Amino acid sequence: MSGVHDLGPRLASALQRHAGLNGRVEELRRLTGGATKTTWSFDLLTGDGRQPMILQQTPARLPSSGPSPGPSFGPCAPKLDAAEDARVMIAARAHGVPAPRVVAILDVHDGLDRGYVTARVEGETLGRKVVGDPALAVARAAMAAQAGAILAAIHATPTQQLPFLQHLSPAQELAVYGDLLERTGFRHPALEFALQWIRRHLPTAWRDALVHSDFRTGNLIVGPEGIRCVLDWEIARIGDPMQDLGVLCMKTWRFGGAPEAGGFGARDDLYAAYERASGVPVDPARVRFWEAFSNLKWAIGCVRRGLSVRGDGSPASVELCAVGRRMEEPLWDFFQLIEG
């Protein structure tokens, strides 16, 4: 990995090699950091003008014989490596999905971590602002219908050129998350009940499709006109498309907004737009199952974060401990949902 002082020149060289862009990197600044991904914003100044871009760096994925969920802010899930992530975005964008426009996919010859460069899209991503900022009121009025149409396009995206995508049935996802909880050694009656409920209500029939798996408020770039871009494709897979509608309707990801679709719109508007765009009827029972399962996944994710430790066995951070305490929120939402 290069140091910050030579990141700009190496990045400029990589863009010249992969995309034929000759320019100078300016305004380079780090946006986020973590164990799995680092994001930088920058401008590439070329003879044609200033091009706003994003660099995302991701460590190479460790080999695995099966699903191996890794840590992330959202629910744990099998992750794509950087090149795979980029290829999914390219495929989705080619099918009309507002995914980031991939400019270059980095490789070991660039002297940088594995990663990719995309065009930068301006807009709001913070969940509480998306659902509550008065300046985005017009956007919120349109977003449920926009989300339905976007999800229909995602689920219709051809996957023949994406052979690396994992194919996970509901039962396989349950096995993955049950194993994750088992490894923590943590026991809780509500978690055990939720696991059993999910096991008893596993869907028996569905139409496989590309699913984003984390399509929600916070992973959308929003402007005054509505949804501009869909971010965070790293846990995309082949599975039941109703999963994406369930995740979007999770109470956690409404960020305090009252409307059931992402905290910004009506569930009925989401369903109607999806059916118009896809020609496929929404199965409310399967959406409810995935909404419930997604609450359980996030509860398990909270447990894992809360129990994270350093090499010496001490708690990883106060922040992660605080996330662990939030386990009760998605569990409460789970019980409210299945009782309703």
Score class of each variant (00 low, 15 high):
L112H: 01
D81L: 10
S169E: 11
A152T: 04
P69Y: 00
R114A: 15
A144W: 00
A99H: 02
L168Q: 11
T118R: 06
H155V: 07
A149E: 15
T157A: 12
V102R: 02
I105L: 06
Q51V: 13
V121Q: 03
A171F: 06
P63A: 12
P158M: 13
Q146H: 07
P158N: 14
D48G: 14
A149T: 07
L45M: 11
G70M: 11
H95F: 07
G127E: 07
R120P: 00
I54G: 10
I105A: 08
E173C: 08
R61Q: 14
A137S: 15
L112K: 01
I54E: 08
P98N: 08
E173G: 02
R120M: 07
A77P: 00
G115P: 03
V138D: 15
R140H: 09
S65R: 11
A92Q: 00
A119P: 00
Q57A: 14
V176L: 10
I105F: 02
G178N: 05
D81A: 12
A153V: 03
Q146P: 03
R50W: 06
D48V: 03
L62E: 13
V176Y: 04
Q172R: 15
L151P: 00
A92Y: 00
P69R: 01
L44H: 01
C76H: 14
A104F: 01
A149N: 01
A175F: 05
D85I: 06
A144F: 00
R120F: 05
Q161C: 08
S64R: 13
A91N: 09
F164Y: 12
V117S: 02
D113N: 09
F73G: 05
V121R: 02
T58R: 09
D179A: 15
L126D: 13
P75K: 07
R101A: 15
L80C: 08
L174M: 12
A156I: 13
H155R: 05
P75T: 14
R128W: 02
T46F: 03
S169I: 09
V138G: 15
Q172F: 09
L44A: 07
R120D: 05
G49L: 10
H109I: 04
P163A: 12
T159R: 09
D133I: 07
A142P: 00
P69D: 05
L45E: 07
I54K: 09
Q160F: 11
A156R: 15
E124T: 15
G47F: 03
P163E: 11
G115V: 10
A149K: 05
C76T: 04
Q172M: 14
L45N: 06
A82Q: 03
Q51G: 01
A77M: 08
R120G: 02
H167W: 02
Q166R: 14
A175L: 13
Q56C: 13
A91H: 04
H155C: 05
P134D: 13
L62K: 11
P78K: 07
A156D: 15
G148K: 05
R50N: 09
